[in-house]
Amino acid sequence: MDVVDLIATILMVIGLFFAFIGTLGILRMPDVFGRLQASTCISTMGTIFVVLSSIVYVVAHGMSGSVVVKLVFILLFVLGTNPVSNHALCKGAYRSAKPNPEPILDDYKEDDPQ
C-alpha cells in the first residue's frame, strides 16, 4: 500500500466518520429540527470527503479526466440541491410539527413575515 492509497483511505475514513455522526444525530435528536440540522453533516462533510478521496484515487491510478469531472459534478449537485430541500422541510416542519425542546426565542412567530 503506497502513500496515495493511504491518503485516499484517510480522507474516506474522515468522510464516513462524519456520515456516521449525521446518522447518529438523526437517531438521537428529539425533534424534526434537530434531525434536519444533524443530517446536514452527511451531505456536506460526508460527501465532500468521500468525493475528495475518490478524486485522489482516480488521479493516482491514471484514470481519465472525465471521471474527475463527473465526481466534481456529483459534489456540486448534492451541495446545490441539499439546502433547497432542507429549507423547505424546515419551513414545513415549522408549520406542522411541535418543537421539542421549545425554542428559547422565536423571531419568526413575532414578525410573521409571510
Partner: peptide, 17 residues
C-alpha cells in the same frame, strides 16, 4: 448566502424578508 448558511450544519435559513 442563505444556501451557504443552510449548508453549514447547525443553522438553517427559513426565510429571507
Amino acid at each position: 448566502v442563505s444556501n451557504c448558511i443552510t449548508l453549514t450544519p447547525g443553522t438553517i435559513t427559513m426565510e429571507t424578508a
